[in-house]
Design a protein around this nucleic acid. Structure first.
Length: 972
RNA sequence: GCGCGUUUAGCUCAGUGGCAGAGCGCUCCGUUCACAUCGGAGAGGUGGCAGGUUCGAUCCCUGCAACGCGCACCA
């Protein structure tokens, strides 16, 4: 027998309740599918048993770079509805939570933070910056998880994953390696989308085209005239092109024409290419392969005829190279000045001032993107795998990634809700191009590509045996003053010591075993600081001392230069000095000697600027000129090399340098469904011996992927590709796409517009349940969601209504346990229970069909306008024992009495003495019990049906009504 | 240019081949024992426009318009 229910407070206090209830759920452990109990059958209302035994949703990991917004709340609510519903139906239900490091997005957020602090990542040390962002995301992650709990997310926290967890990173590396082995990933020089502000490449998806009106310049090129909006790229022109069918220009094709240019006379060859539209402009285009993707392709088609990319714009969007007086100007300034100059020298024929076109901009900062030629890693979307090794057994499919993704949906293995999204999906895949996955930022998963120092051959995901570092000593006073220091024993100054400490701290992350240092004071001190911080062994090596400057030692560099000319020569020039050749000889001898002895250790060489230079030359196989062109080594600067277990297959070298770039976050996100589930939980032998299924076997393919339609291409399509590629199976069976949340004026919410609704803020005011309900009702799949505080308030009122219904029901509760009552013979009871059954079937159907908005509205209406307004009102007389006095509902038969007699002490205060004796009194009593039980059954079922939508208030009431029971695992 | 979506009450949105729905807002009435964070009653829609299919269309088809979105592009 359960204890008597507590009476309810007069008001529902969501603040006190929500936290308490979430703790109760967590304590039960039922969010972890491994702990789920056998489902009890407590209801007289039948529901069909679920056929499938498990149910799994992988939560789209929110970005760990800020608080959750209302869009997250939509997703969390919809997923939680599905998860709670399926759990209540007895399925082994897993909802796996996580967080995304969100490479570029987080980098941008962090850049802004740095900017506010007057800092800038481009001058920061990689490791230092990484550590800071790591701390930043970890902090955000914890806040975010707290927010998910506040939203009632019933996910399994024991399986929580972060996209930078080592096991996830390993999976991502393995995928990259497999792609490489299958010939589906390659590194190539292409003209890519470059954001000059963020200084990184972007994928095609991250480009936002905006319409702009710009002048269209008609420029005379010798006998021809062409139109361009970018006269400033003229310096990078390497040819002219016309359409092969354009008769006007046939006679020029293959010929070289001479043209007057801003910087003098130019000669260009004219090529014929289909890409040129004869109807646009004059039908002649200039070919600028370095700064226009289309021109780059024209060049590739005419490689033998015309010169390749000639770079005239740099990474910050300024003119560079052979551009005369325009050097250093930003693109926009240069455009005007070049145009003015053209006009001046009479080659500007005319200007169409109102030419509208689409301009590629950065989707984050809105700056105009600069097409630049850069070698990047690309994934082939439309090519079949071509394994590098002859062993093709490991191939999961012989189809291109694109074709796999198309087929899975075409064959109906993956269903989209709403269905119309399929068309968009197919259309995108049809036109897809190779995916640039390199990003020139620090925050992310660093690409596991190592380039052989000897020959440049890449090695993917190799085993690293040891890391070797070249470090220049910290600053000395002579450095500061600009004096040449060779073998003089000048100590570090304060700055030098602090530089050395910073470097030491960084090196500590790499578990240094050995420090090999030049014995000169400035190196010795630096090395000792590194030793003290890292605890590594320190030895000295005479062959690492600085170049002997001979007569110039101790002189100010400018004075020395004045007197002796160029100081930086391969052969000795200054009396008594060494040339770089001499330094190179002895330094390389020392390096190889120690490498033989210590190749398995992590080693730091502490040495001098000149020595580092010569070592870099040898290591990187530079020509002599390249060594001198390269900027000089800064005090305490570090160069890292990796010693790989296996030698380079091409040249036999074992020293490599890792690609500094990181992956596009979506590359790792694309692997999220299987990466999170492939992680071994407990020992494999345990799983094997107990014949337990691993998470991957149990839950993959997952059931539903619920996310916003705005990341259909970014994420969903790529998950399908990567899932199929790695596992041979689809990652999920159904994709449910929700809309974007808009404000009352249908504006997209954004921080900059200031129209954001903070879901946690309004939850604090109106309760989480009200927010969830407001986000679900009227929210058809794929349609944008309009939310207002009024609507939330409306559902807060509903929670209050529910609470008051509970107060009424509980106040009539007898000392009965919650058991299945015998069927009431009372017509009214039977009719109401029959209607309840219908409503339940309807709601079940709606939820199964992902029509959550309809399910929510149905239960809302049933509870308020049927149960509360009609049923309760009609039952009031019976509950008061008045029904017989009016000869109402119940037939004069006692058979309908529920098994669990509800007589003694039932609703004590309301039992009037006169009615509790005699046969008439008995009938009244049994009718009251039947009425109550019907009411309680309907209410309990209503609570269940509402629970996925409004979990907190329903659980709280359930606790009061049936102390000791848990609604969260009640049988649906 | 190609494609997609939307157009229903004052506002924001659901839904259905057969008397048109919700929330909020509005009007009137009501604080008696679940509930004023409420209850009761009510006003309010030629369902964008024009055709077609049908016994019957808000729903299906065609065209148009307005708004929104996605994709692709030529300098």
């Amino acid at each position: 027998m359960n204890p008597m229910p507590e009476s309810l407070e007069s008001r529902y206090d969501h603040k006190a309740t929500e936290e308490k209830i979430y703790r109760l759920w967590e304590k039960s452990g039922y969010f972890n599918p491994d702990n789920l109990p056998f489902v009890r059958h407590t209801s007289s209302v039948k529901s069909h048993d679920a056929k499938a035994k498990s149910f799994c949703i992988i939560m789209p990991p929110p970005n760990a770079n800020g608080a959750l917004h209302i869009g997250h709340a939509v997703g969390v609510t919809l997923q939680d509805i599905m998860v709670r519903f399926n759990r209540m139906r007895g399925k082994k239900t897993l909802w796996l939570p996580g967080a995304d490091h969100a490479g570029f997005e987080t980098q941008v957020v962090f850049d802004k933070k740095l900017d506010k602090e007057g800092r800038n990542r481009f001058v920061m040390d990689r490791e230092e910056l990484w550590k800071e962002i790591w701390d930043f995301t970890q902090k955000n992650k914890e806040i975010m998880y707290g927010q998910l709990k506040k939203l009632g997310a019933s996910c399994d926290w024991s399986r929580e994953k972060f996209t930078l967890d080592p096991d996830i990173v390993k999976t991502v590396y393995d995928t990259f390696e497999k792609l490489y082995e299958d010939g589906l990933v390659y590194r190539d020089l292409r003209v890519i989308n470059w954001c000059p502000k963020h200084r990184t490449a972007l994928s095609d998806l991250e480009v936002k085209y905006v319409e702009r009106e710009d002048p269209l310049y008609y420029i005379k090129y010798g006998p021809l005239t062409l139109a361009t909006v970018r006269p400033e790229t003229k310096f990078g022109d390497t040819a002219l092109a016309v359409n092969p069918k354009d008769k006007r220009y046939t006679r020029y094709v293959g010929k070289e024409i001479e043209a007057k240019g801003v910087l003098g006379t130019l000669k260009f060859k004219v090529v014929a290419d289909e890409a040129v539209d004869p109807k646009f402009g004059t039908g002649v285009v200039k070919v600028t392969p370095a700064h226009d993707p289309a021109d780059f392709e024209i060049w590739q088609r005419h490689k033998n005829e015309i010169p390749g990319p000639k770079i005239v714009i740099d990474e910050s969007g300024r003119l560079t190279g052979d551009v005369g007086e325009f050097k250093g100007l930003k693109v926009a300034e240069a455009r005007e000045k070049v145009a003015a100059k053209m006009k001046e020298i009479g080659i500007l024929e005319k200007i169409d001032e109102h030419y509208t076109h689409q301009v590629a901009t950065c989707y984050k900062c809105g700056n105009i993107l600069e097409p630049l030629p850069k070698p990047q890693w690309f994934i082939r979307m439309t090519a079949k795998p071509q394994p590098k090794t002859s062993n093709i057994q490991h191939l999961t499919s012989n189809k291109s990634l694109r074709d796999m993704a198309v087929e899975a949906v075409r064959k109906g293995k993956i269903k989209f809700i709403p269905k119309r999204i399929e068309k968009v999906y197919f259309h995108w895949l049809k036109n897809i191009r190779d995916w640039n996955i390199s990003r020139q930022i620090v925050w992310g998963i660093r690409i596991p590509a190592y380039f052989c120092l000897g020959c440049g051959e890449p090695k993917i995901n190799p085993e690293v045996k040891a890391r070797w570092f070249l470090v220049r000593h910290g600053e000395t006073d002579w450095n500061k003053e600009g004096r040449l220091i060779g073998n003089s024993d000048i100590p570090l100054n304060d700055m030098g010591r602090s530089q050395a400490r910073a470097t030491a701290k960084k090196l500590k992350l790499h578990n240094i075993d050995l420090i090999i240092s030049s014995p000169l004071a400035r190196c010795r001190e630096t090395a000792e600081i590194i030793r003290d911080v890292t605890g590594a062994e320190l030895i000295f090596e005479d062959r690492l001392i600085e170049r002997n400057h001979g007569k110039t030692e101790g002189m100010l560099r400018k004075d020395a230069e004045k007197e002796f000319g160029n100081l930086y020569t391969y052969e000795p020039r200054i009396p008594g000095s060494e040339g770089y050749r001499d330094v190179e000889l002895r330094a390389w001898e020392a390096f190889t000697h120690h490498k033989n002895d210590h190749h398995h250790k992590n080693v730091v060489f502490v040495t001098h600027g000149g020595v580092v230079r010569t070592l870099l030359k040898k290591l990187r196989n530079w020509e002599v000129e390249r060594m001198f062109q390269n900027p000089s080594v800064k005090n305490s600067e570090v160069f890292e090399f990796d010693v790989l277990k296996k030698q380079c297959t091409k040249c036999g070298g074992d020293l490599f340098e890792q690609d500094p770039d990181v992956f596009d976050t979506w590359f790792s996100s694309a692997q999220w469904p299987f990466a999170t589930l492939m992680i071994s939980r407990g020992s494999k032998s345990k799983i094997k011996s107990q014949k337990l299924k691993s998470d991957f076997e149990e839950f993959y393919p997952t059931d539903v992927m619920e996310t916003g339609y705005d990341i259909l291409f970014f994420w969903v399509a790529r998950m399908v590709m990567m899932g199929l590629y790695r596992t041979g199976k689809i990652p999920f069976k159904t994709v449910y796409l929700n809309g974007l949340v808009r404000d009352k004026d249908r504006e997209k919410m954004s921080k900059s517009k200031g129209n954001v609704i903070d879901p946690l803020g309004v939850a604090e005011i109106y309760g989480t349940d009200a927010v969830r309900m407001a986000l679900v009702v009227g929210n058809a799949p794929g349609n944008d969601i309009v939310i207002s505080e009024d609507k939330i308030r409306g559902y807060r009122n509903f929670a209050t209504k529910l609470w008051n219904i509970a107060r009424f029901v509980v106040s009539h509760k007898s000392a009965t346990s919650y058991q299945q009552p015998a069927a009431s013979k009372n017509k009214e009871d039977r009719e109401n229970l029959a209607e309840l059954k219908k409503i339940k079937a309807k709601i079940t159907r709606h939820v199964e069909r992902f029509e959550f908005h309809l399910a929510a509205e149905t239960i809302y209406h049933y509870i308020w306008h049927t149960f509360a307004d009609k049923i309760i009102e009609r039952y009031k007389p019976r509950l008061r024992g008045e029904s017989f006095a009016f000869g109402a509902a119940m037939r004069p038969s006692g058979h309908g009495a529920p098994r669990s007699g509800a007589s003694e002490g039932a609703s004590p205060a309301r039992l009037l003495a006169g009615q509790s004796s005699g046969s008439q009194g008995q009938k009244i009593l049994t009718d009251r019990a039947a009425a109550y039980h019907t009411l309680e059954t309907i209410f309990a079922e209503s609570l269940k049906m509402l629970h996925p939508f409004m979990p907190f208030v329903t659980e709280e009431i359930f606790q009061k009504l049936f102390p000791g029971e848990l609604l969260v695992t009640e049988k649906w």
